[in-house]
């Protein structure tokens, strides 16, 4: 392999590691909130809308989509191989555009709020 050609690996690994750490630290708390089992008032329309109305809230909510989604996309690609799906190029063409679609949708929805 030509070592002068930059590897694409850091591009995939950075979101994988960042997303994995973000999900590890914050996803359990978020899931507890959306079930309504903890602080049910937090998921009322008024509370959610007020939170998503300012740019800092939008940024936080965007983080809850972007970081876990790119982490999951990369891990899903690798795990597909372990589950016996060996068509890596095809899998990559499903998971990464899927993650991109969810990211774009999140941005569009947040800008509409």
């Amino acid at each position: 392999m030509n070592s002068k050609v930059p590897s694409h690996k850091p591009l995939v690994w950075l979101p994988f590691a960042a997303g994995g750490m973000f999900a590890a630290l914050l996803l359990p708390a978020a899931i507890l909130l959306t079930t309504g089992l903890v602080l049910p008032a937090a998921t009322s329309y008024e509370a959610a809308h007020a939170f998503a109305s300012n740019w800092l809230g939008k940024l936080v909510l965007l983080g809850f989509v972007l970081l876990p989604v790119w982490h999951a996309a990369h891990r899903l690609r690798v795990t597909a191989y372990d589950f016996g799906i060996r068509a890596d190029t095809m899998v990559a063409w499903i998971v990464y555009p899927g993650a991109a679609l969810l990211s774009v949708l999140a941005v569009v929805f947040l800008l509409q709020i």
Partner: peptide
Amino acid sequence: CIFIALYAILFVWGLGAL
């Protein structure tokens, strides 16, 4: 990661609904 992806889909659905 399957479940984290699933939750992200639910989350985006929620943002759309909001």
